[in-house]
Structure formats: C-alpha cells, structure tokens
Computed example of a mutant assay.
Amino acid sequence: MTRVWILPVLMLLCGGLVATDKAADGSHVGAATFALLFALLAFATSPLVFPRSVGAAEAGRRAALDGRPVVYWRPGCAYCLRLRFRLGVRGRRAHWVNIWRDPEGAAAVRAATGGDETVPTVVVEGRAHVNPDPAWVRARL
C-alpha cells in the first residue's frame, strides 16, 4: 500500500526543496511555479488519477458481463499514465486492476506477457494486448 505513494511523496519533497531554494533567492514567483509544478507531477503519478481498482477475478467477471476491457496497471508507470490520460473520461468505463495490490492480477499479466509484469496490459474479449495504442483501447470502450 505505501509503495504506491513513494513517487508522489518524492515529487512533493523535491518540489518543496526547489521552491524553498527559489524563495530563499528572493524569487517568490519562481518558488510558487515550482511548487505548483511538482504538486501537479505528484498528483499525476499518484493512484488518485486512476479509477478505483478491483481484483482480477472481479474485473474478469464484470468484463464477461459487459464486454468492457480489463486494464492491468501499476502506479508510477509512465505508459499506464499515458493510457489513462489519453482515454480521458471514457477510461472510467474500463475495469482497472492494480497489479501491486492484486497478486492474481500480477500473475495474469505474467501469464500474458511471457513472465514479466509489463503494463499496461489490456484484456479485450479474453485476449491480452501489451501496451496497446490508447486510440485502439478508446475504440473498445
């Protein structure tokens, strides 16, 4: 649980240090700018950007009922973040599984990718697609 917050907390700490340095030099506008920039980076890399994750079994059950994709992801993954932002509000329609929280989800990703945990892995109609084009995923939503 705490591992998912390491990167966002580091972003906030670095932003605080840079902003403090800028403020000590008398550049209050620069300090505010860096503080805001690092706060946005911390938010973007946090689990708060992603919809609430469900377990792999629950996601599979829901996908079988409604035909929506299952997206396996992990916090701090730039490719997962890219997919999430490019999907926009439609991304909430997919079933998201955080592989750091769900060992069954991590095992499903390893089975689909040949033993590694490459994410995002999107499962559509029972077929896994590793790091697919966001436009392709958006079309399936």
Rank of each mutant, 00 (worst) to 15 (best):
D116S: 06
V54H: 00
A108K: 01
A64F: 07
V119I: 12
E104G: 10
L13K: 15
G16T: 10
V9D: 10
V49N: 00
V119P: 02
T45G: 05
L10G: 04
A112E: 00
A57I: 03
L83A: 05
E58S: 00
V109Y: 01
A94P: 03
F38K: 03
D133P: 14
A128L: 06
F34W: 05
A57E: 02
M1Q: 10
P47K: 02
E117Y: 12
C77W: 13
P75E: 02
A108S: 03
W136Q: 04
L40C: 11
G30P: 09
P51W: 04
V122I: 12
W100F: 06
G105N: 09
A128R: 00
A128Y: 05
R127Q: 15
R93E: 11
M1D: 14
F34P: 02
W5L: 15
V71F: 08
R3D: 15
V89E: 14
T20G: 09
G26N: 14
S27P: 03
L83H: 06
H129K: 11
F50G: 01
T113F: 08
R61L: 09
T45P: 07
P51V: 05
D25C: 11
R92G: 13
H28Y: 12
L7M: 13
P120Q: 13
G55S: 13
R84V: 01
A44N: 03
D116F: 05
W73M: 14
L87A: 08
P69R: 06
Y79P: 00
G26S: 09
A23M: 11
R127Y: 12
I6P: 10
A128N: 03
G67M: 06
M11Q: 13
V29M: 11
T113Q: 09
E58L: 03
G91N: 07
L141V: 13
C77N: 08
V137M: 04
T20N: 08
V122D: 02
E104Y: 00
T45E: 01
P47V: 08
T45I: 07
A94I: 00
W100S: 08
L83D: 01
R61T: 15
V97H: 01
R68S: 08
G114A: 05
A24H: 11
L12F: 13
F50P: 01
G30K: 09
V137A: 09
S53F: 04
A112S: 06
A112T: 01
T45N: 13
R3E: 15
A31I: 08
V97F: 04
C77V: 13
P47C: 01
G114E: 03
A139G: 09
V71P: 02
N98L: 08
C77T: 15
H129T: 11
V122T: 07
Y72F: 15
W100P: 02
P103I: 12
N98D: 13
N98M: 03
G26E: 04
P69S: 14
F34I: 00
F85Y: 15
A135Y: 12
G76T: 12
R140T: 07
T2Y: 14
R74E: 10
G15W: 15
V97M: 00
V54G: 05
L65K: 03
R140C: 03
G88F: 12
V119Y: 10
L141K: 09
F34Q: 03
D116I: 08
S46F: 06
A64G: 06
R101W: 07
T2E: 12
L36P: 06
V137D: 05
V89S: 11
E58T: 04
N98Y: 05
L37Q: 05
